[in-house]
């Protein structure tokens, strides 16, 4: 398999804080990778850095390669051609990523004409087809509607249609279902599933919801305080997390079946904001298993299983995991 996206040692600094410190990520063609983390984990900043969507106040370090090309070196023209054609993004708030003053059809055909060179009529026909694909009835007529005429779920479908319009090689979806009701979330996830499978599109899904991530992704990356703390195949990590933070995340979600504990297992404190001291594990303060070494030496990513890696000096062993 060939790598669509290779991110090496990505760092993102804002004027006062470091949001991402040393994140590496590799996405193969057609693969689905999930990035999960809480607020301040740097998951969204990572996604925006890959799309080159960060404000100019951010300093980006490291390497981002898309199909072998250096993304950080793209000039504005190359960037514009690349976005939409090879890579597309779906955001949390569909209303803010659609222009409220333009008809949905205009916004859909824009990319088709620019990136795929279609004529006006052909673009419109393709737009109708796309809207049908994302499950919008009466597509012909709805092309002439403005975004406010669509419900939240329908708007997100339109955004997905726009993202999928030029069959990009990679879609980055940043909390695409967070603003939606759970029954609608299910439909939107099904739709993303279908589209990415049909065109073998690689997907990076960013979410705070481990449930959403694990129901969609082949591999997941757990981020905490700007760093990846655990990565590997979804099933392995969900079944037997090696990092105490991943364990804590899984334990914090009450199950829908089986017995319930009277109290939920918790870790104290809250996710750190801003600058985390280097030279120690960022999770050490909250970790129930922290020892002296965790406070004096930052752990690096190391294999903890056949396919999983974790950044922990004392990864949970099989016995402690259950």
């Amino acid at each position: 398999m060939t790598a669509i996206l290779e991110v090496d040692d990505l760092t993102v600094d804002f004027s006062r804080t470091t949001a991402v410190r040393g994140v590496s990520l590799r996405v193969e063609a057609g693969e689905r990778v999930g990035i999960v983390g809480e607020s301040g984990s740097g998951k969204s900043v990572t996604a925006q850095a890959v799309m080159r969507l960060l404000p100019p106040t951010a300093t980006v370090g490291g390497r981002i390669r898309f199909a072998g090309q250096d993304v950080l070196g793209f000039d504005p023209a190359r960037l514009a051609a690349w976005r939409g054609a090879d890579i597309a993004m779906v955001f949390q708030d569909p209303m803010s990523s659609l222009n409220p003053l333009l008809r949905v059809g205009t916004q859909l055909t824009e990319g088709l004409r620019r990136h795929r060179g279609l004529g006006k009529a052909a673009a419109r026909a393709e737009a109708v087809r796309l809207l049908r694909t994302v499950g919008i009835d009466d597509a012909e007529r709805r092309l002439d509607d403005y975004p406010h005429a669509f419900s939240g779920g329908m708007r997100q479908r339109v955004c997905i249609a726009i993202a999928a319009a030029c069959t990009p090689k990679l879609i980055i979806a940043d909390e695409p279902t967070t603003a939606l009701d759970v029954t609608v979330q299910a439909q939107v996830l099904d739709l993303l599933d279908e589209l990415t499978e049909r065109h073998d599109t690689a997907t990076v899904l960013v979410s705070h919801d481990l449930g959403v991530i694990s129901s969609f992704c082949d591999r997941i990356m757990v981020m905490y305080a700007g760093q990846v703390v655990e990565a590997g195949p979804t099933d392995d990590i969900v079944a037997a997390p090696a990092h105490p933070y991943t364990r804590a995340l899984l334990d914090s979600i009450p199950r829908l079946d089986g017995d319930l504990p009277r109290r939920l297992p918790t870790v104290p404190g809250s996710p750190p904001f801003g600058n985390v001291p280097t030279g120690s594990c960022a999770f050490a303060d909250r970790c129930p298993h922290a020892q002296d070494r965790c406070r004096t030496e930052a752990p690096t990513m190391a294999p903890v299983g056949p396919n999983t890696t974790a950044a922990c000096h004392f990864p949970l062993t099989e016995g402690a995991r259950t």
């Binding site: 029954t183 439909q187 599933d193 694990s214 129901s215 969609f216 099933d235 979600i253 829908l256």
Partner: peptide, 15 residues
């Protein structure tokens, strides 16, 4: 419709 960690991937969720 609620995705639960460990419930498996790629099942049809939207009932």
């Amino acid at each position: 419709a609620i995705p639960q960690p460990g419930a498996g991937r790629r099942h049809r969720r939207g009932v």
